[in-house]
Amino acid sequence: MRRRRRPALPVFMLGIVLTLLAASPALASTYRYWSFWDGAGGTWAYATQGPSSMRPADGSVQGFHFVVSKDAADQAAPPRTAPDFAAICSATAPVTGKKRIALVIDFGTPAEAQAGETPPQDAPRTACAQVGPDATTAEALAEVAKPLRYNSAALLCAVSGYPKQGCGEPLADTAATPAPDKPADASADPSAGSDGGGGPSAGLFAGIAAVALLAAAAVWQSRRRRTR
């Protein structure tokens, strides 16, 4: 009796899945970038929009922190100064037709700086921007922290000229790079826009691809059993 030769497709799919799963940790690179935070309610939360699209209301607090992190949603640390609008904007009198936005700019630590660069100051900088009612956070930031630098994808690369080079690229040696501790009360959101300064998480896409392949393999096997 001749044995029916089994198709190699399931084995091929399994090989792809195992390859993707094995590669996922390597794809979760570490990034150095400007993270963007919203201080609504007196607590920092990772912004769900980028600074070029967010239009904060009068009395809002927005934060920027230059960080080293593997994943914006889970590991990026918020600015080291509390989001306190009254403390930041108390000396700026309200003006009709304008809104006041409190800004916290944290340049990070020397350990997080790029080679050959030093943060402009150790402690976070605070400023009160007085801008038009429809102004974005990026416009408010430009009022108090020029020069700003963006890349072609509208990702914020530098605040007050820091850093001088680079823009969110993955670090070459992640093992030797110090990463900030994850804050216990950070509420992060990985869905921030491309101009939000959040570092990408490539492992997520590999995981999705692996799940999709497993599902396809299961459907194929089910149909094969029916045709026997």
Rank of each mutant, 00 (worst) to 15 (best):
R100L: 02
A202D: 01
C128M: 08
I208G: 02
S194T: 06
K182Y: 06
T177R: 03
E112Y: 04
G59F: 11
L27R: 08
P56W: 11
Q130A: 05
T136C: 05
Q165S: 14
R80W: 12
Y150A: 13
F85Y: 04
A40T: 02
T118C: 04
A123N: 10
R32D: 00
A77Q: 01
G203Q: 13
R3C: 08
A142F: 01
F66E: 11
A217M: 00
D185N: 10
Q130K: 11
P7I: 14
V104K: 09
A57L: 15
S35E: 14
C128R: 03
Q49D: 08
S187K: 13
Q121V: 05
A206M: 06
W34P: 08
L141V: 00
Y33Q: 11
G198Y: 01
F36G: 09
P51W: 07
A87R: 07
V144Y: 09
R223Y: 03
L103R: 00
R225A: 06
A145I: 05
R5G: 06
Q121R: 01
A22I: 05
Q221W: 11
A73T: 02
A188K: 07
G161K: 01
F107G: 04
K99R: 06
A82W: 10
E169R: 10
A138I: 07
I88E: 05
Q121S: 06
T118Y: 04
Q62M: 13
R223E: 07
T136I: 07
V61M: 11
Y33A: 15
S187M: 12
T174Q: 07
G197L: 01
T227M: 08
L141R: 01
V159G: 04
A102C: 04
R125Q: 04
T136G: 12
P178F: 02
E169P: 12
G39P: 02
L14F: 04
D122N: 13
P10V: 05
L18A: 10
R100G: 01
P25V: 03
L213V: 10
R6T: 13
A111E: 05
E117Y: 11
V144E: 10
P147Y: 00
A86T: 13
L171W: 14
L20V: 05
F66S: 11
L204V: 08
S90F: 11
T19D: 15
A138N: 04
S222W: 12
P178T: 09
A142N: 03
V131C: 00
L213H: 12
A175R: 04
F64P: 09
P79A: 08
A87C: 12
T136F: 02
T174I: 00
L103H: 11
A115N: 02
R55D: 07
P163W: 09
D134A: 13
G41F: 02
D173Q: 03
T81C: 15
V95N: 01
